[in-house]
Nucleic acid binder design. Structure first.
Length: 494
RNA sequence: CGCGGGGUAGAGCAAUGGCAGCUCGCAAGGCUCAUAACCUUGAGGUUGUGGGUUCGAGUCCCACCCCCGCAACCA
């Protein structure tokens, strides 16, 4: 049994406001982090912000402020996610502009360079004179800039540092071979295997400083800065204090014999996390990750969220809307957490619309757990039910000996919640079948037995809800244990 | 011949080759502890199209149609 649990999200790029897709990722990670903390594992939970690169440099220029002030402002917005989404207390938040991160990225670079995996090469840049910007192939249509069809694209050659990705085909395939659960779900694992099998090309990992100074300085070369990807990926270990704090690094990141790091990422990040970053770790002679969990995207009304479609959903917007419907902040957070964890399939794309949200909220939170708690607690109150010791002593470690949720061990967050809602349903059925509300008038002892059964199992449900909906779980637990005033967990909304 | 995922009830999804199911929504009945909540029952399907294999196909094979991603230095 492992006593250390490391989990990290990817770092969102700070060129826009927090997006509900990232809320999904951090909430998934949070559920796993909380789950392991409840199992008494020592948890290191990392997130942060990716702050270098040309896009940010330009945005700051546009706004007429320096890049550092620009990223400072955005980083604080992302830091707020912790409070605004009810994230785990011990969350570590790293910024790629942190001094220790930059130093770590440079040390990482030196290691790769020393091993001979970094070299210089001419890099062909496609440049649109009209936009005065570099363009990638995917941005071009028929070899022309779609915004300036009348202009020819110019090819400019510049010297960049390259990473010898091509040398890692075999090592990566071996890594995949030896770790049959390296990437979940299987469909994504197959996708990355195919990609690696099809051949790897070295990629550029630097930019000319004179054109784009907003990056980590390259050791012993004043003329270039690191390409944002290279420095950003290093955050997963710089957050642990690598390279200085080797003890903490090994404790949480693990060793070559026993890798320990779990990473969660969106499907757009499959290659970067499960191939490029792993190759970089191998190049630097460091342990690889243990597992990469790939989640899907949230669509909005069946379409990819995009600014031009105007269907982007911000997590704060959902919370504000719920508060306007009469929920308090904590209830709103748990309601959002519920939807993201249960209604969005853990490994697939899922849809978010306000209509679906309301439907699911009313069915499962208001009518489900909310109403169940309310009817059970009311019956208990009516007969002045006294909480017995076996109920008081019930805690998360007494659930089948230790805290354990099967479906969470395999990262099936939505399925884990399905199980909980099956229990909720079965308690509703129990009440209907046994009718303790009738027994009260005929046979008080029998009614007490039923109510004891109900309260006991309601507390079990509350314990299982802890990682998913921490506030709801806490309210339920304290209400049961202290027989305090009956809360209305989730009022109906419309 | 670029790669991958998908098409099943109004919506969202599930079904080792063996009676096509679940949740929401909808309708009827029941119950009164509860937040017009809860329980039971019901309606709703030619499983994208056309072939094939098989005693038997949503599932396997072939062809086609449609949708959605990705197509690598755009993080």
């Amino acid at each position: 049994m492992n006593n250390q649990y490391y989990i990290t999200t990817t770092l969102p790029y700070v060129n826009s406001e927090p997006h509900i897709g990232f809320a999904l990722e951090i909430i998934h990670a949070d559920i796993l982090a909380r789950y392991h903390a409840l199992k008494r594992d020592e948890v290191f939970f990392n997130t942060g912000t990716d702050e270098h690169g040309v896009k940010i440099f330009r945005k700051a220029e546009e706004q007429g402020i320096d890049a550092q002030s620009y990223v400072d402002e955005y980083a604080s917005k992302f830091k707020e996610l912790k409070e605004r989404l009810g994230i785990f207390e011990g969350l570590h938040f790293i910024r790629t502009t942190d001094t220790n991160h930059k130093a770590a990225a440079q040390e990482f670079w030196r290691k790769c360079l020393a091993k001979g995996y970094i070299y210089k090469k001419n890099y062909e840049v496609k440049y649109c004179v009209g936009c005065e910007l570099e363009k990638t192939d995917s941005e071009l249509e028929n070899g022309k800039c779609p915004l300036h069809i009348n202009l020819e694209i110019e090819n400019i050659s510049e010297e960049n540092y390259f990473f010898k990705f091509s040398e890692f085909q075999k090592p990566l395939l071996e890594l995949y071979e030896e770790n049959p659960n390296f990437v979940v779900p299987d469909s994504r694992f197959n996708e990355i295997k195919k990609f690696v099998e099809s051949g790897l090309q070295d990629f550029s990992i630097s930019r000319l400083k004179e054109k784009m100074p907003w990056g980590v300085a390259i050791p012993d070369d004043e003329s270039q800065v690191m390409y944002v990807w290279f420095d950003a990926l290093v955050n997963y270990i710089s957050t642990l204090g690598w390279p200085e704090d080797n003890a903490q690094f090994e404790k949480f990141w693990g060793t070559k014999e026993q890798p320990n790091a779990v990473q969660i990422a969106g499907k757009d990040n499959l290659r970067q996390q499960s191939a490029m970053w792993q190759a970089m770790l191998l190049a630097a002679d460091l342990p690889t990750s243990k597992q990469i969990i790939i989640h899907g995207f949230i669509t909005s009304g069946g379409h990819k969220m995009s600014k031009s479609l105007g269907n982007v959903i911000a997590p704060y917007e959902v919370i504000d809307k719920l508060e306007a419907s009469g929920l308090n902040n904590q209830q709103a957070i748990d309601a959002l957490r519920y939807y993201l964890a249960r209604e969005i399939p853990t490994f697939e794309d899922g849809d978010f619309t306000w209509e679906r949200f309301v439907e699911s909220y009313n069915a499962n939170l208001a009518n489900g757990i909310g109403n169940l708690a309310s009817r059970i607690l009311k019956m208990a109150q009516n007969i002045s039910f006294e909480v017995s010791n076996d109920i008081l002593e019930l805690n998360h470690n007494s659930l089948e000996g230790v805290y354990h949720i099967d479906e969470l061990e395999t990262m099936n967050i939505d399925k884990a919640m399905d199980e909980i809602w099956l229990s909720i349903q079965s308690l509703d059925k129990y009440i209907q079948t046994n009718e303790p509300f009738k027994k009260v008038k005929i046979d008080l002892e029998a009614a007490k037995k039923d109510i004891h059964y109900l309260i006991f199992h309601l507390k079990g449900i509350a314990l299982k809800l802890q990682p998913f909906m921490p506030h709801t779980a806490e309210v339920l637990l304290s209400t049961i244990d202290t027989s305090s005033e009956i809360p209305r967990l989730f009022p109906r909304i419309n």
